[in-house]
C-alpha cells in the first residue's frame, strides 16, 4: 500500500465519486504480487482493499449563515501550513483509531452553492474505527486546519467566524 494519508487542495471543482475511485485505485497499487497472471490481477487487487470504508462529502449551502441567498463561498488558506496541518491531523487520527488509510480533498478559492467543498474518506478493517476516525478527522480539520470562509451575497462579502452546527 502507498502512503496512508492522501491530502489534496483543489482550486477547481471536483467530482467526489471520481476522487474516491482514484483513491481506491491508489490503495490497490502494489497488491499484485509476483507470479500473478493478468486474469487474477483484478481479483487480487479487489481483495486487497480494506473491508470497511467511511465517506463524507460536504457541499456549499445555498444560503448564508443569516439565511440570505448565497452567491458564492470564497475559501482562503495558508499555503504550506494548511497542507502540513492536514497531514498531521490525518496521521494522528489514523494512529488513534488504528485504521489503514485516509483521504482528504478540500476546495480553496471561489466555490458555488452545491459544489463539493470537502471529501473525507477512511479505509479500515472494521466499520467502527472507520466511522469514528472519519468523524474525528472532519471535526479536526474544521477547527484546526487554517481555512477561512467568506460568504458572498448581494455583491457583499462577509467573513465567517466559527463553524456551522454539527
Amino acid at each position: 500500500m502507498t502512503t496512508p494519508c492522501t491530502i489534496e487542495l483543489l482550486a477547481q471543482p471536483f467530482e467526489p465519486l471520481q476522487a474516491l475511485a482514484a483513491w481506491q485505485r491508489q490503495l490497490r497499487c502494489g497488491c499484485e504480487g509476483p507470479g500473478t497472471d493478468r486474469g487474477d490481477a483484478s481479483r487480487v487487487e479487489q481483495a486487497c482493499l480494506p473491508p470497511a470504508e467511511a465517506h463524507f462529502i460536504g457541499r456549499v449551502r445555498a444560503t448564508t449563515a443569516s439565511g440570505a441567498p448565497l452567491e458564492a463561498l470564497e475559501l482562503e488558506h495558508y499555503p504550506g501550513m494548511t497542507e502540513r496541518q492536514l497531514v498531521q491531523l490525518a496521521e494522528g487520527c489514523l494512529q488513534r483509531h488504528g485504521v489503514a488509510a485516509a483521504l482528504v480533498v478540500h476546495r480553496v478559492g471561489r466555490i458555488l452553492p452545491g459544489e463539493a467543498i470537502v471529501l473525507v474518506a477512511v479505509a479500515a478493517d472494521r466499520r467502527g474505527p472507520a466511522q469514528r476516525c472519519g468523524q474525528e478527522l472532519l471535526e479536526a480539520l474544521k477547527h484546526e486546519a487554517p481555512f477561512w470562509k467568506r460568504e458572498w451575497s448581494g455583491g457583499v462579502g462577509g467573513w465567517v467566524e466559527g463553524n456551522t452546527a454539527w
Binding site: 460536504g58 475559501l75 495558508y78 501550513m81 478540500h106 467543498i117 470537502v118 472532519l138 480539520l141 474544521k142 477547527h143 484546526e144 486546519a145 487554517p146 481555512f147 477561512w148 470562509k149 467573513w159 465567517v160 467566524e161 466559527g162 463553524n163
Partner: peptide, 10 residues
C-alpha cells in the same frame, strides 16, 4: 509569524 483569525474550514 502569522496571526490567524478564527478558523472556518470544511
Amino acid at each position: 509569524l502569522a496571526f490567524l483569525p478564527p478558523i472556518s474550514g470544511g
